[in-house]
Simulated scan of single mutants.
Amino acid sequence: MRIGLDTRNTGRSGGTGVATYAATLGEAYSDVGISPAWLHDDMANHTRPHSFPRKIKRFFQSAHSTHHVQPTSDGYVGHDLYRAAEIRDRTFHTPISIKADTPPDLMHWTYPVPMRWHGIPNVVTIHDIIPLLHPEFSDTPTKRLHRRLKFWCDNADAIVTVSEAVRQDLISFFELPPQKVSMLSQSVSFATDLMEASLTVEAPCPKDGFLYFGTIERRKNIGRLIKAHGRSGTMRPLILIGGLGFGGAEELQALAHHPTPERVHILPWCSRPALVRAIREARCVTFPSLAEGFGLPILEAMALGTPVLTSFGHATEEIAGTAAFLVDSTSTEALTEGLTKLDYDDALSLELSSSGQERAQAFAIDPYVLRMKNFYQRLLTG
């Protein structure tokens, strides 16, 4: 069985949840004898400034509805595929079609890009529809996103989600037949060499603090978290690791009202080994997001034995189960009480550490591999 995978997000600096998802899929394939066929873009790492002639050439390239790709040692490569598809979608409101002399058995798009592989089954993972349900949390053009998602809802052979909450959102919003959408979740794992590196890397931040990691943006509720930390009176630091996203600068304005702003540490970036060390040494990982499709930081913290504070409802509660301290994250008072409780209650911290590790086992790589393999076999055999 040979399954195609796009590389639309895997090469992006800083890493994303979608990039982690795609990489995990590739790992899962090799574990069960499935051959991943990566769809590469020969311009993905092109760093020269985009000249006017280059833009003109891209525009004319995007006018072609079909793009032929060539085989490589680990899949296929096409010329400027992803950017050309983006331009075609924005200009002509239609996706490009991919063709190859020897295509994979099935193409799994790890993100709803405006592309489709001609002549074989196409699967797409839709991670969330937050911009459609909560446009106040995103600067994503909603009309464009709606058009792309509607295309996939109409044309995909199957749709995959990573949480039941998102599955129900899709079925309801786009009025889809339930059997077309499969919830296959996501796996969390840490490679042995990564764990070893985390033991020797320099610590990026103080230990025993309240840690948030991810993009600093409006839907992550960082402003309310900062307020709650200040009101709690805790002596433990609040560490925020991540770059600024939509509304992030406004969220950080809460620092102006923090009684001891020097206890809030902001790191725009740190290496993956350093992040693993930071998670392991934290008193608690805080993830009070207002809207999520999954919540990978919840599981990563649990797998590493670190207690988690996260939000009631939707995907965050679904992923955390009863193994996290759940709060109404729309309430600064509730967040304050949660931080205060986790600040002092050692017994609760030990309980959450243990239950979190147990919860993370349900998202281990082995059961995930079996779900994916069975899903592909059912789709290919009809």
Results as ranks from 00 to 15, higher is better:
residue 9 N to Y: 12
residue 17 G to K: 08
residue 19 A to E: 13
residue 22 A to L: 05
residue 27 E to T: 11
residue 28 A to C: 11
residue 28 A to N: 02
residue 29 Y to A: 07
residue 47 T to Q: 14
residue 52 F to S: 11
residue 55 K to Q: 15
residue 55 K to L: 15
residue 57 K to Y: 07
residue 57 K to H: 11
residue 58 R to L: 13
residue 61 Q to K: 13
residue 66 T to V: 15
residue 69 V to H: 09
residue 72 T to N: 08
residue 79 H to F: 10
residue 81 L to Y: 13
residue 92 F to E: 02
residue 96 I to F: 13
residue 96 I to Q: 15
residue 107 M to A: 13
residue 113 V to I: 12
residue 115 M to T: 10
residue 116 R to P: 01
residue 123 V to S: 05
residue 131 P to K: 03
residue 135 P to Q: 06
residue 140 T to I: 13
residue 141 P to I: 03
residue 142 T to N: 11
residue 150 K to V: 00
residue 155 N to R: 13
residue 155 N to F: 05
residue 157 D to Y: 09
residue 157 D to V: 05
residue 160 V to N: 10
residue 170 L to Y: 05
residue 170 L to S: 08
residue 171 I to S: 08
residue 182 S to N: 08
residue 191 A to F: 00
residue 193 D to I: 06
residue 198 S to Y: 08
residue 198 S to V: 07
residue 210 F to G: 09
residue 211 L to Y: 12
residue 213 F to S: 10
residue 216 I to N: 02
residue 220 K to C: 05
residue 225 L to K: 06
residue 233 G to F: 00
residue 246 F to S: 01
residue 249 A to H: 09
residue 252 L to T: 08
residue 269 W to Q: 14
residue 270 C to F: 01
residue 274 A to Y: 12
residue 276 V to A: 12
residue 277 R to C: 07
residue 280 R to H: 11
residue 296 L to V: 11
residue 304 L to K: 10
residue 307 P to D: 05
residue 310 T to F: 03
residue 310 T to A: 10
residue 315 A to Q: 04
residue 317 E to H: 04
residue 317 E to T: 01
residue 329 S to F: 00
residue 336 T to Q: 13
residue 344 Y to S: 13
residue 348 L to R: 09
residue 353 S to W: 02
residue 354 S to A: 15
residue 357 Q to E: 12
residue 365 I to N: 00
residue 369 V to K: 15
residue 372 M to H: 15
residue 373 K to V: 08
residue 377 Q to D: 14
residue 380 L to R: 10
